[in-house]
């Protein structure tokens, strides 16, 4: 694109969508389930930030002599098989789970929106080829993809790990510390997970873009001489934002669920780190004897997923263009 168009796409005054955002926000606030979900999610997130930081135990501090104990005043959620404080581990695992949800969704968002909008907007042969690829990938067993990626590219000293260390080196001098390796593993696996879950996003965006492309206001923009790229960026995508946000909100729990599933299979987060999926999976093994080791992480995970799903539904209602039109 030439300098000409960069001048056009400069943001003009305050955001054009402000009243729509305000409108949607007002409608969302009327939806009690959605507001409650938002509040619970906020509280959980806060807990995940604060509890491991302020708690008197570390997430990896073992006390083999203590072993598993039920909830008590000293350990509100009890301790696990290695005598680690479960509450700290659960909230620490929450950090990982939330991060996974957000990172993977962001990845799938970027790929899916780009792919879908290009296919939908330019149409015809480009669209046909791009969507055939998506169809083919749909039938590609994505689990294998994730597993293979994680074994092949994400090993210690592997290509991607080295790149990660270099990037991390910009922020901290301790980047080479091997204790950062599990962190890298998580980040990597879930970026890969995001890359595997953009397909539906691409389909949704394409559908939206095709519908919007047929709208007269797109033709109107073309008739005043706007370029195709600026029409896509200034007119089509902002109007497609509603369904995109909704689907992104619904992707977060889906990805968290997949991470839990992978951890269950021993492929996701690794000890001594924790994620809700890993905690629940190891809790499930001893649930008949030490039920609390399963109950707390499983409950946290279920509540979070429940809230994200409710929030997504609430957003869908709030952003529904048909309601907006009336």
């Amino acid at each position: 694109m030439s300098a000409a168009t960069s001048g056009e796409s400069e943001p003009i005054e305050d955001a054009g969508g402000s009243t729509f955002a305000a409108d949607a926000w007002r409608r969302l606030r009327k939806n009690r389930a959605a507001v409650a979900s938002l509040a619970v999610l906020g509280a959980l997130l806060l807990g995940c930030i604060l509890v491991p930081a302020l708690g008197s135990y570390g997430y990896a501090d073992t006390d083999l002599a203590l072993g598993p104990t039920p909830p008590s005043w000293a350990h509100w959620m009890g301790t696990d098989l290695f005598g680690r404080d479960l509450m700290v581990r659960v909230f620490f695992g929450g950090r990982v789970s939330f991060a996974v949800g957000v990172v993977s969704t962001a990845v799938s968002f970027v790929i899916g929106v780009t792919w879908g909008s290009v296919a939908g907007f330019f149409g015809r042969r480009i669209d046909a080829v791009m969507m055939r690829i998506v169809d083919a990938l749909y039938t590609f067993p994505f689990l294998i993809f994730v597993i293979l990626l994680s074994v092949f590219f994400a090993n210690q000293g592997g290509l991607l790990h080295r790149a990660f260390v270099r990037v991390l080196g910009l922020f901290t001098a301790r980047a080479h510390d091997p204790s950062y390796f599990p962190v890298f593993q998580i980040v990597f696996v879930f970026a890969a997970l995001g890359a595997a879950s953009w397909l539906t996003m691409a389909r949704i965006v394409r559908g939206q873009v095709i519908a919007l492309r047929a709208q007269p206001f797109v033709e109107a923009a073309r008739s005043i001489g706007a370029t195709e790229a600026s029409i896509l960026v200034r007119h089509v995508l902002p109007n497609a934002l509603g369904p995109i946000i909704v689907y992104a909100t619904l992707t977060v729990p889906e990805v968290m669920l997949t991470e839990a599933f992978l951890s269950f299979l021993g492929l996701g987060t690794q000890e001594p780190l924790a994620s809700w999926g890993l905690l629940a999976a190891s809790g499930a093994e001893t649930m008949d004897v030490y039920p609390w080791v399963l109950v707390f992480p499983a409950l946290m995970l279920a509540v979070t997923l429940f809230c994200f799903n409710h929030l997504g539904d609430g957003l869908r209602d709030a952003l529904d263009p048909r309601i907006r039109k009336d």
Partner: peptide, 18 residues
């Protein structure tokens, strides 16, 4: 339906078993 979507299978399974 929402609960069904939110509870992972590996939590559901041990619960049912138990």
């Amino acid at each position: 339906a929402m609960i069904g979507v939110s509870v992972p299978r590996f939590v559901l399974a041990p619960l049912l078993v138990m």
